[in-house]
Design a protein around this nucleic acid. Sequence first.
DNA 1: TTCCATTGAATGGGTGATCCATTTAATAAT
DNA 2: ATTATTAAATGGATCACCCATTCAATGGAA
Lengths: 288, 288
Amino acid sequence: MSTKSSPRAPQRSRTASPNRRERAVDHRAAGASAAPTFKPIHTRRTFEEICERIREQLALGVLKPGDKLPAERELAQQLGVSRNVLREALRSLEMAGVLRLQKGVKGGAFIQQGDTRRMNEVMRDMLSLGTISVRELSEARVHVLDLVVQLACANARRADLDALEANIERTELATKEGRLLDRVECSREFYKLLAASTGNKVIAMIVDSVTEIHMRFVYAKVASSGVAMARLAEKRRQFLAALSERDVALASRLLRSHLESVQRMLEQDPGAMSLHVALADVQPGMRR
Amino acid sequence: MSTKSSPRAPQRSRTASPNRRERAVDHRAAGASAAPTFKPIHTRRTFEEICERIREQLALGVLKPGDKLPAERELAQQLGVSRNVLREALRSLEMAGVLRLQKGVKGGAFIQQGDTRRMNEVMRDMLSLGTISVRELSEARVHVLDLVVQLACANARRADLDALEANIERTELATKEGRLLDRVECSREFYKLLAASTGNKVIAMIVDSVTEIHMRFVYAKVASSGVAMARLAEKRRQFLAALSERDVALASRLLRSHLESVQRMLEQDPGAMSLHVALADVQPGMRR
DNA sequence: TTCCATTGAATGGGTGATCCATTTAATAAT
DNA sequence: ATTATTAAATGGATCACCCATTCAATGGAA
């Protein structure tokens, strides 16, 4: 052991620390196939354990949104880990949208209301990493939106329709004043409102995540070429009318034809529509 | 300033450190509504900045799956941050499935192929936090699966159908041998294969995430009550036949009626179907 | 009494030094 | 040629700090 006399005082016994969590070896057979699978060890690390424990408390309902975790220094001691490694865990959970860390006395780690925008990030990462393609994303969006129209026709409430109406008015205003990029932002919001009008947050979350990315491409296109979808507000009005009449077939047809025309707009001059251009910068309102 | 002479040697000037990143104040107007919004400062923290920079490199295509980041010590120096805070960022990215950290010489932080299972975790968290409900999840699942049937009828390839066939055989075997929980695992895999047969990974990812949770409920039910869906393999065979014939209407009808009967099974004795029971423990094969 | 400035403690944010365990390549011994 | 040893690089983890922010308690001025 290197005994260079450093100025570190403590030098406590470090080996065989009392909090070495050993992996409970998992002998459960199961698995659909009877193939002997032996891989997945990967030495559980402290911060994973911590994350899991906190998520467990969450799933058990012991921790609920609004609750506060003990202070870092105290929780670290309770868990028998260093403050640094605890912070790694808290950071991960914060990035995952589970926690919010707040400074100052009376600060701490607070359990958050779930942030549905997390799914956007998943989609973005999958696209960045090449796991999914733009084509798959567009296709999924078209199909899911078709489903959304059905559900919205069935479930949309007065307030939902009013919100869509208000959105269309903002779109008209932006069009009149030539604020093209704001109009894109209006579109993003339109689909968000439409998705919300299904009354199903799972579906809304899915739609938002694919729409967020789609709109980046539209944004990039509009910003670079200055082109803009013609008669946008008018088309929206027709669609909203069909939705208000609960006319699934018509609403569905209108939306589909609109989506196709947008797609054509995006696809002309395809060279400019780089994945990287669209994903690279973050536009206002599109922040996570 | 407290000048208690600690044994710490360096004591470098710490204030006004050269790597204080200041927020480029964002004056872009935009936003759909003209309401003067002033909130969103929240003092960007170092680890967020680091995460974002790495994601940026990813989106730009500078970093690709398989690439290795510089060693922690070196990267920390390059970024002008401490190694600890760099690790917080790397940890977050690892949890997000973007990186994999590997020990030893020749180890490091490697960019990963995107892991679609991340979406499962999002769903789970949203459910744990009460942001979405089981009802919404089931409803979304039914609708999305209906869409899946359409797409699968249109796109499923020979290999996909064969995989489904093989899965049904495993289901039969498990049934014959009374391995009820394995049979649940087979079901999970069945839907995974079905989703994959759409040829669209976005949709597959969505289906998998909702199915994973659904199956936890089924698993909990089967494990606690010992009941089991009757004539499962037989129903699957009928469905697969319809799928092979590209008979959307029939396949859709068969699946829907099956899903309804499963739902009925789950809903009898509703007291036992606690959210916490289903989410709390992690079954084999259902690990992230 | 009421109000406002000051103070001080608690908390998250961040740093640097150090040690440990694992992994791999280079080297030495057989 | 094979095998054991060694050394270096890397992530994993800890400790002991310091800083900036926040907010309740305190105390003096109006």
